[in-house]
Write a protein that binds this DNA or RNA. Structure first.
Length: 243
DNA sequence: ACGGTTGTTAGGCC
DNA sequence: AGGCCTAACAACCG
């Protein structure tokens, strides 16, 4: 269940490992794991759908993709793609992509586009949209991690419905005030997603994702895969305006 | 039991 | 060059 909020949720559960020494690491994911055992884990954070494990001279990112899972002090029958062992605890990532980078994560990731970040900058995202994505469909851009890092298929469907914007609208045709509203709603809903995750019920409380009837009326919800991004899209043609 | 999926990348083909 | 398509990854849910 990995969209940005899910990663935040995982990170909050393993934050206490900061400052601890890595005693061992493993996994089948192809990556240079030399010099990780013995290092102090300086910080665990996220950017969008990436975990970031920071060490003195390098950092490691882990991406869960569609099927990935993280277990703290638990193991599955299948092999882990990446694992980090500490004195008392172990982290096991399954079906995950792992990469190692020299330097600091700030060189790679811009927190101002991360929908869950305290540094999220709605003006910057608006500028990006209006300058670099004029012809793009809003439904496609909401899955573009360079603009809305952390937004996934549930977040984009809910954000569009709640903003009453049709996913096939071209950015250039959507008034700035509606784009601003969409950006704000996307961030707000991402935090609601995190809340629902912790209480259970992301899907139950969804207004349009995987639903068949629009909550505002009794109109049918259309389910199809428009745009370049071939992902399930749920639209109420009555509530959501095409620009 | 089996089809669908909260994601991304790589590679092939025009 | 670059857009478009498919496969691959490989687990869980109903």
């Amino acid at each position: 269940m990995p969209e940005g909020p899910s990663i935040i949720n995982y990170v909050s559960g393993i934050k206490y490992l900061e400052g601890q020494k890595v005693t061992d690491c493993g996994g089948y994911a192809p990556m240079d794991r030399s010099h990780i055992p013995g290092e102090i884990l300086l910080s665990v954070k996220s950017h969008g759908k990436n975990f970031i494990f920071q060490f003195r001279d390098f950092f490691v990112t882990v991406h869960l993709g569609l099927f990935g899972r993280l277990l703290l002090n638990g193991r599955k029958k299948v092999n882990a793609s990446f694992s980090l062992h500490f004195e008392q605890d172990e982290l096991n990532f399954y079906v995950s992509k792992v990469k190692r980078f020299e330097g600091v994560p700030e060189d790679l990731f811009d927190a101002e586009t991360d929908v869950m970040s305290a540094e999220f900058n709605p003006e910057k995202v608006l500028r990006l949209l209006q300058e670099n994505y004029k012809e793009a469909l809003i439904g496609d851009v909401l899955l573009d991690q360079n603009v809305f890092a952390g937004s996934g298929n549930i977040i984009r469907n809910e954000a569009l419905y709640r903003s009453k914007i049709h996913p096939e609208s071209r950015i250039v045709d959507v008034p700035a005030r509606k784009l601003k509203e969409l950006i704000a709603v996307t961030r707000d809903y991402s935090f609601e997603f995190l809340n629902l995750l912790q209480k259970g019920g992301v899907k139950k409380k969804a207004q349009i994702y995987a639903k068949t009837v629009c909550p505002a009326g009794h109109t049918e919800i259309r389910r199809y895969k428009p745009g370049k991004v071939k992902r399930n899209t749920f639209v109420c043609e009555k509530c959501q305006k095409r620009y």
